[in-house]
Structures are given as C-alpha cells and as structure tokens.
Design a binder for these strands. Structure first.
Length: 350
DNA sequence: AAAACGGGGGG
DNA sequence: CCCCCAGTTTT
C-alpha cells in the first residue's frame, strides 16, 4: 500500500475528536490554524472555543477592537498572531466581502498565513493537494526516510517540502494532511515513539538504522538573554497606572505598569528617576518591593528578572504620554502578559 | 541566513 | 534543564 494510504488508514482509526474537525468553514479552520501555530492542541483548544463563541464569524471578529482580541488571546503567546488575525479579519470583510481566498496562492497573501497555514486551509477546506510541512511532518519524514538534513536550514526546508509534494495524496488532500500530522503527534512522537506497533515500521529507514532518537536533525539552540524589568505599581487607593507597549519587541500591544528596565533598580534609586519624580510631583509616597527576590519569567529566548515595586501615595499622579489611570476593577479588562496577569491576580484580588 | 517572537508541558 | 509544540515575520 502507498505511504499516504497507510497513514490515512491509521488516521481513520486513531484520530482524536476536535471541534475544528467538525467543519470545513474556512473561518473556523483559519482560526484554529493560527491558534495552533507553535502551540499544542491542549493549550490552544480552550482559546479556539472562546474565539468561536465570542466571534462566530469573520464579521464579528472584524468588528471587535484590537484590545478585545488581545484580551481573549492573553496567555497564548506570540501576540503578533492575534494582531494579524484581527487585521486579516478586517481585510476579509472590508476588501473581500467576507469571503476567504480559496486557493493556496491566495491564502498566502493573508497576514499571519505562511506556507504551512495556506496549505492547511487550502487542503482542508478546498481539497487542494498542497502538502503541509509542520513539526510533525518533519519528524515523520526524517525518520521514515532516514534524512539527516537539518530541518531549520534553507536546504532542509526545500528538501522536505519537495518530498512532501511527492508523497501528497491527490485523492484525499484534506484527510492525508491531517493524517500525517496526527500520526506525528500521537504515534511518531518526539520522545518514545511507538515503533513496535507502528503501521509503517517495516519500511522505516530511521528505525532500521537505529537513528530514531537522532531524528529530525535541528541546528543549534538559541542563547538566552537576561533582562531586568522593574514595574512601578502605583496605588493611590482605588487607582493604578498602566501603559501600552508600543513599537516592536516582546508583548507588542499589551499593557503593563510603568517600567524601568535596569539591573540595578532598587527602592532607593526609584525616587531619583525622572519618570518617578514627574509622576508623584513632590507628593508623599512609600515604596515597598512586592517580593525581595525577583520573579524569573522564562521565555524561549530571554529570561526576564522581574520585580514589582508597590508605590503607595495620596498624591494626584501626573500621567506622562501614553500612561492612563486604571481603576482596580478595570484592570482585569486590559490585555497583559501572563507575567503581569499572575501578579495582578494576587495583588488586585477581586 | 539568522533572529525575534510566548508560554506551557514532557522527560 | 532542555526540547518541542498544527510557524511567520523581520532583520
């Protein structure tokens, strides 16, 4: 039997039930694919359900504010996905009369939709025979064919895509693409794959060579940077101060407390900063660290050593630039990084 | 070609 | 602690 047919047979017997497998509505498929980029099904599922309920069609999503979208996305990470999701929804509604492109090529034009996502939507919704190549596919193909070309190089990306095109099932594109991904997720797992009971273990080159543990090959890991975030949590009784992160960089579009990024910030140095002086404007204050030890927030590419300084004051805070006063009750409505969300939940208990 | 972009889970 | 996850965009 053909490689693709074997995977499809396995898939039909082993696939999980998932809400986006109950529809071919391009809006729902697109939504699920964006949410699942670099994200496990278990983590993305509750977000998919929330979005599908809050925004049943692309029209409701397009009508939302970016802040609403970011708030619903809070905690999922890679927030550019949420901004692109919203921008694309508005584009589909305003320029395309609410109708999604129905080809791989057309889908590729959408913000936040790259090669993988365009292939996924085109195949699942329109049965276009264009193969998906995600982390699962790299693993399955590298093992089955014993390919040790690093998957995160131009040569590797090209080689695996070419192979995927050859293997593509032209009779059942939608089923085949989901089959190979599900096979990678459940059977040909990163660690401890079930090779003993694998339906294609009789022709797996990687298994034959005892190389399953070394495949796929991936080049070098990134080095982690350290950063030091000191948040000024103003508290004049019923209000605090928030500001939005603008421009490029981490957490773009999300809100946070006024920030001093500096390794040596302390209770004693804060009153010497320009931003603090302008804010309290000569008034009385007491600064207390929330915790003595910094909270280390670990991201894949940086470790953020974070301290929250509580600034009790009765003075009228002088807001600067993008800063805004926020009531204790309102603070939970703002989209914030999970790091701040955790702090807010403990400090501003409802 | 390399770096940036989150957060959580598994071993 | 390290790796990986239904990747894309920017530098």
């Amino acid at each position: 039997m053909k490689f693709s047919k074997k995977l499809i047979t396995w898939y039909l017997q082993n696939k999980r039930t998932m809400p986006w497998r109950e529809t071919k509505d391009p809006y729902r498929i697109w939504l699920s694919e964006i949410i699942l980029q670099q994200t496990r099904v278990a983590q993305g599922l509750p977000y998919y359900l929330s979005f599908a309920e809050a925004f049943p069609t692309v029209f409701e999503l397009a009508s939302a504010t970016e802040e609403q979208v970011l708030k619903l996305w809070q905690g999922l990470g890679y927030y550019s996905r949420a901004r692109n999701l919203h921008a694309t929804a508005k584009y589909i509604v305003n320029e395309l009369e609410g109708v999604f492109p129905d080809t791989y090529k057309g889908l590729l034009e959408l913000k936040g939709v790259g090669d993988y996502t365009a292939s996924a939507i085109a195949s699942i919704c329109y049965d276009e025979p264009t193969p998906v190549v995600d982390g699962n596919v790299y693993r399955v193909l590298s093992r089955y064919f014993g390919i040790n070309t690093p998957i995160n190089t131009t040569a590797g990306i090209k080689e695996f895509k070419g192979l995927a095109i050859e293997l593509m099932d032209h009779e059942q594109p939608a089923t085949y693409n989901q089959a190979i991904m599900e096979f990678g997720a459940l059977q040909c797992k990163p660690k401890n794959p079930y090779c003993i009971v694998c339906p294609i273990n009789d022709s797996c080159v990687g298994l034959d060579k005892g190389a399953i543990g070394e495949l796929p090959v991936k080049l070098k890991k990134i080095k982690v940077k350290k950063r030091y975030f000191n948040y000024l949590v103003y508290d004049n009784g019923n209000q605090t101060v928030l500001q939005q992160r603008l421009g490029k960089g981490i957490w773009e579009g999300l809100y946070e407390f006024p920030l001093i990024e500096d390794e040596k910030c302390t209770v004693d140095t804060i009153p010497t900063t320009q931003t603090f002086k302008e804010m309290v404007n000569g008034g009385e204050y007491v600064i207390t660290p929330f915790k003595e030890e910094p909270i280390v927030h670990k991201l894949s590419h940086q470790h953020i050593y974070t301290r929250f300084f509580i600034i009790k004051t009765d003075t009228n805070l002088l807001l600067q630039g993008i800063q805004k006063n926020v009531n204790r009750q309102e603070i939970h409505n703002y989209p914030v990084p999970i790091l701040l969300g955790n702090f807010i939940d403990s400090f501003f208990k409802v």
